[in-house]
Every structure is written in C-alpha cells, then in structure tokens.
C-alpha cells in the first residue's frame, strides 16, 4: 500500500469526529463523577490516567453501588481486554515506528482511535498517530473538567446526540468497506451475529462477550475464507 505524506490539515480533519464525539461524553462523565461525590482531583485523575470511557462510567456505577476497589479493577480489566485484540492488530502496521514511541502510542489506543487509525492505514506515520491520539486525549480530559466545573452547558438532548457521533463514526468507517469487499461484509455480519448471541445469551459477563466475539469471529474468518481471497 502506498503511504501518503503526513498532512497536518488532513489529520486535523480526520481527528475532528473523535474530538467532537469525546467532548460531550467526557462532560457527562465529569458531571456524573461530581454527583457521585468524587473530588475534582480524583475525577481528573480518572480521565488523565485511565482514559477509557466505558470503564470510567462503569466505575462510577460500581462506586455508587458500594463495590470494592479490587472488584472494580477486575471488572475494568475484563471490559478493556478487547484492547488486547486491537493492540495486536495495530502491531501489523507499526513496524516502521521507532519502538521507543510505542508506549505512548499504546496509551492512546481506544476503540475510537483504533478505528480511525486502522481505516486510514495509508496515512500511518508517527506524527499522524500521535496527533490523532493526543487530540482525542485532550478532548477527553478537557471535557471531563468542563463537565465537572460547569455541568450542563449543552442541552442534554444535544449532548446525547453528539455522543451518537462516535457510533456514527464507526459506521462511517466500516460501511464503505462493506460495499467494497464481500469478505469484509461476511465477516462483519458474522461478528455482529456472534456478539448479539453472546449479549442475549447472557452467559458471558460484560467484557468477555466483547473480547470473545472479536476473537471468535476473526478466527472463523481464517477458516471461512481462502488465503487468496484475503483482504489487503
């Protein structure tokens, strides 16, 4: 695949959906943390050090329910195990990135940054990744502070609609690929069906259902498709 040269403007445009999507969700986190009686300092530390949306919300929920620290940490671990898969997948495309930068890049791997980076493989370069990750992080941390500090500046319905933007982004990244390759269409539908079965089956705890559905559907791809059909 031909690599494109790094373009600041292009990278900013690509990062914009992440920034717009993260900010209101982070605001909601900040406000909810305040309502859970967590100090501003601790709330900021959640977003600065953990930087994982779903598990931060889950932690507030569990803190409110009086769950012990160790159980919240175990639940966080399970929920974030899916990043093992994403981190492994990214390793394919980071062979040219100096290894000393990988710990910084790894910190910024979220569902959203992973999606944007994996679907823009031709643009992968150190500045591209650091900017996408860095701007997402900034939006997440600043959103948390704003939410904690001034609460509902945006009408709730607008805030919720902006949160839909993150799912819209996943769809905008995936859909064109579905139309380009039957193989991608098949494996995506398979993954969706497996996850839905796990979700409604209810026999796996949250977290396991995600990571096992990703693992199983990607593995099944190996058996369903022949080598030469392979994408890339």
């Amino acid at each position: 695949m031909d690599k494109k040269k790094f373009s600041l403007k292009e990278t900013l445009v690509i990062s914009l959906p992440l920034i717009i999507g993260y900010f209101p969700v982070a605001m909601a986190f900040g406000l909810l943390a305040k309502n859970t009686a967590i100090s501003l300092k601790d709330t900021s530390l959640f977003s600065i050090l953990v930087f994982a949306g779903a598990s931060q919300f889950m932690a507030l929920d569990l803190i409110g329910a009086g769950v012990s620290n160790i159980n919240i940490i175990i639940a966080t671990f399970l929920l974030n195990l899916r990043h093992l898969m994403m981190s492994a997948a990214l390793s394919l495309d980071m062979k040219e990135i100096p290894k000393k930068f990988l710990p910084f890049i790894a910190f910024g791997i979220t569902d959203e940054s992973f999606s944007v980076i994996s679907f823009n493989k031709d643009k992968i370069s150190l500045p591209f990744i650091l900017l996408v990750n860095g701007l997402s992080y900034l939006s997440w941390v600043l959103g948390t502070l704003v939410g904690y500090g001034i609460g509902e500046v945006l009408p709730l319905s607008l805030q919720a609609s902006m949160g839909v933007g993150l799912y819209a982004m996943f769809s905008a990244l995936l859909t064109p690929e579905l139309t380009r390759s039957r193989e991608v269409l098949k494996i995506s539908l398979l993954a969706a069906a497996i996850y839905a079965a796990f979700y409604y089956g209810g026999f796996l705890s949250a977290g396991w259902d995600l990571v096992l559905a990703i693992l199983l559907s990607s593995l099944l791809g190996l058996f369903i498709f022949k080598e030469e059909e392979s994408h890339e």
């Binding site: 898969m85 997948a89 569902d111 992973f114 679907f119 995506s188 990607s218 593995l219 994408h231």
Partner: peptide, 12 residues
C-alpha cells in the same frame, strides 16, 4: 487473523 480485527471490532 489480525487483519480481520478492525472489521469484527467495529461491527461489534
């Protein structure tokens, strides 16, 4: 296997 992960993850 790894190259399928972006598609399966996003779909999920």
């Amino acid at each position: 296997f790894l190259s399928y992960i972006p598609y399966t993850s996003l779909s999920i």
